[in-house]
Write a protein that binds this DNA or RNA. Structure first.
Lengths: 250, 250
DNA sequence: CGGATAGTTGAGTTATCTCAAATGCAGTGG
DNA sequence: CCACTGCATTTGAGATAACTCAACTATCCG
């Protein structure tokens, strides 16, 4: 657990090729944390906070349901997932955590969570002291408004998941997942030519969308045969966005 | 839209047989709002707020996705549901709103929501002025902590729904729904002898649990045949809680 | 009585799952 | 360089949970 004293990288706007204030240059390829409006504020503010950086190998746990967190973790690099494990080996992935995402907004207020956070790729994340963050929140009412928006958005995403799982077909779900991920990565400037990094295994898609991995396989094969997408060496390209959106019901 | 000026019913503690500070005696059979810790505070505070009472007949909309809300509604009496309608007539119920529930925590901060709120029974609800409520929040840091807990709980419920829909069998889901509703009503003192008011139609259960109404029917018939529950004239009784919990996976 | 809403039951269909086995691929160690 | 292991993907075959359609019954309410 290396600890960096204070973040000295507070160089200007986070857009374009500038680096994220949350992550020093040598740790981060792109700046993502800005994608949510709220983060503009955090970005400026976090330079004043103490934080520490951690790296976790693919497949390793970042946090378990029992763990106690005195710090709030934010992902700088890599993909993670937030999931719940049920008896019988069943698992439901509740969200994929992309660079710039706070791992769970609830951790801003509570030191524990009932979810497992697992790294999908190698993940670097930075943790901030909760007490300091809360202090910051109480001092700046603006921040609170932004936080509430962030929270509402997080809630809307889980609700959307419930809707997908409850009332949409397998095709629809998988198409939506792909489109959503591309949209989220797009906001981070991590999409080029409708192509994105795609480290998910088929069983991740299955556990996220409430399907069996075998069925996910057949769906993906079918999507490829129909010329909708292409998956190649960890990258996914959308070949026919119009048709894919139609299937997704958008 | 009748409007009552100020709530004059601020009589003592909300426990026991006393009446809820939020709802005057003649509108409410029992006091429920206290079940969440946060409401203890609201109860005392809301006597100072202006509010108005509305009544809506069963099946009628309380709010539509497009509606603009300057006020935050809280249910005093009756059951409602919060749902999203999809193309193709599909519908996902995201939560049942019971007496004492704020209709959606998000409405504290945002004037619109993407959900339909529909009365299941006749519903009385009271709306509070958002600006005043927010003022109150900013003045009392304690309230904010309570609010965050409330919010985390709401998030956990939606997440639990997603888990149920994604990774649990139909039996499991329906058993869990029944147990959860009884637990929630129990906290409000609305359960006697494992029996509760149960105004849900089978299609409500279906839309909440991502099933077809016919399948729900067969499940309920089977539950009854197995001596697990009894449904009679709008009341549901759990006859064999141990077995029902086993099916629910608890 | 009639009309609306809800519940029940049967029969047949289908989306999705489970089990099983084959293939490919990437890393490891001799 | 090869055998070996671990993981992911693919494909087949059969099972089943849940769905759809359709008809019948019950209940409520004006």
């Amino acid at each position: 657990m290396k600890k960096t004293a204070t973040n000295t990288d507070d160089s200007g706007s986070p857009q374009g090729n500038s680096l994220c204030a949350v992550c020093p240059a040598n740790e981060l390829n792109l700046c993502h944390a800005v994608i949510k409006a709220s983060w503009e504020y955090f970005d400026r503010a976090t330079a004043l906070l103490s934080s520490s950086v951690h790296t976790v190998a693919a497949r390793n746990n970042i946090s378990s349901p029992a763990d106690w967190h005195d710090a709030v973790p934010i992902v700088c690099r890599g993909w993670a997932m937030s999931a719940v494990v049920l008896p019988g080996g069943r698992r439901q992935i509740l969200s994929f955590v992309l660079p710039g995402d706070i791992i769970s907004t609830a951790l801003l207020f509570e030191p524990t969570t009932d979810r497992s956070i697992v790294a999908i790729t190698e993940v670097s994340y930075r943790t901030f002291n909760r007490a300091e963050l809360q202090m910051l929140l109480s001092k700046r009412p603006n921040l609170l408004v932004k936080l509430s928006k962030m929270w509402i958005e997080e809630m809307a995403e889980v609700a959307q998941l419930a809707i997908d799982l409850g009332r949409r077909s397998a095709d629809e779900r998988v198409a939506r997942l792909i489109l959503k991920l591309m949209q989220r990565l797009g906001m981070r400037g991590m999409v080029r030519n409708r192509s994105m990094e795609f480290p998910l295994r088929q069983h991740h898609i299955a556990d996220a969308m409430g399907l069996s991995p075998i069925h996910v396989n057949r769906l993906l094969v079918s999507f490829r045969r129909r010329g909708l997408i292409e998956i190649d060496r960890g990258h996914l390209t959308i070949l026919n966005p119009i048709e894919l959106r139609r299937i997704a019901g958008l």
